[in-house]
């Protein structure tokens, strides 16, 4: 099934209906496997002790925070360049999911930072960049909510998403620079030269599980959005139709 065929929302809905059980099952299985590995297999870090278990959440959430914006950017291109009918839907559906994972990234980061750095919030370059990303997610959602006409909102959101995608690396770079200027680089960081396989393997499983969860939720949210637009059309037709009986 090509991308052009998927432009038909009915076909897309049929595909989603067929994929959904498999995706849900795969997500659940991977999540269980990942959690088992995290708590039963993975050793404690020699420096951080058991708090390293927070990393198995934090890192996948950070990855998904960026993944969400990437999906929105590709969808924005789809809206502005190819005018793919599903691109609007995809962009709108991805925003709250991306925002939720970005929020989780911040919270788990804070809860990890407290025992490790001694403070919930450090104006660390990475934390600050993610905070700005979260603010931009909220901005996009506000933009979507500001207009009733979905296609008009889609084009505005697409322009903002792409400008944001250009700006995000610049923000990251600036915050890095600002941070090294203001802070002695003494915070304890994860890592050292390499991450040992016993830590890396569960991390990969968790990252894959949460990525699958993102995709599943994204498809489900897209389905909701398509139905919402159908209802909107029906309401408009109902309002426009002459009163026949």
């Amino acid at each position: 099934m090509t991308l052009t065929e998927l432009a038909n929302p009915t076909r897309f809905l049929a595909l989603v209906a067929r994929l959904m059980p498999w995706l849900t099952a795969a997500t659940a299985l991977l999540l269980i496997a990942g959690l088992y590995q995290t708590f039963a297999v993975a050793p404690d870090d020699y420096q951080q002790g058991a708090t390293v278990k927070i990393m198995f959440l934090h890192v996948p959430f950070a990855w998904l925070a960026m993944f969400g914006w990437a999906i929105m950017s590709i969808s924005a291109l789809g809206t502005l360049v190819w005018r793919h009918p599903l691109a609007d839907v995809s962009a709108k559906a991805a925003a709250p999911i991306g925002a939720a994972f970005t929020f989780l990234c911040l919270v788990t980061g804070a809860l990890w930072g407290r025992p490790m750095w001694g403070t919930y919030w450090e104006w660390d370059a990475r934390l600050t960049s993610v905070l700005i990303l979260f603010l931009m997610y909220l901005g996009v959602m506000a933009l979507w909510r500001a207009v009733e006409d979905p296609s008009r909102a889609a084009r505005a959101a697409a322009v903002f998403t792409l400008v944001g995608a250009i700006n995000l690396p610049i923000i990251k770079f600036s915050v890095d620079w600002w941070n090294t200027l203001h802070q002695p680089a003494s915070v304890l960081r994860l890592g050292g030269p390499t991450i040992h396989m016993s830590i890396l393997a569960p991390l990969m499983v968790m990252a894959l599980a949460f990525s699958l969860m993102f995709v599943t939720l994204h498809l489900a949210a897209m389905r909701n959005e398509i139905l919402r637009r159908r209802i909107r059309t029906l309401h408009l037709m109902q309002a426009a139709a002459p009163r026949a009986g």
Binding site: D44, G49, A50, T51, K53, I54, L57, H58, V107, T108, L111, W112, R114, P115
Partner: peptide, 10 residues
């Protein structure tokens, strides 16, 4: 370990 609360909270 000693930071169980933070792990559970996360």
């Amino acid at each position: 370990g000693q930071h169980a609360g933070f792990i559970v909270a996360a």
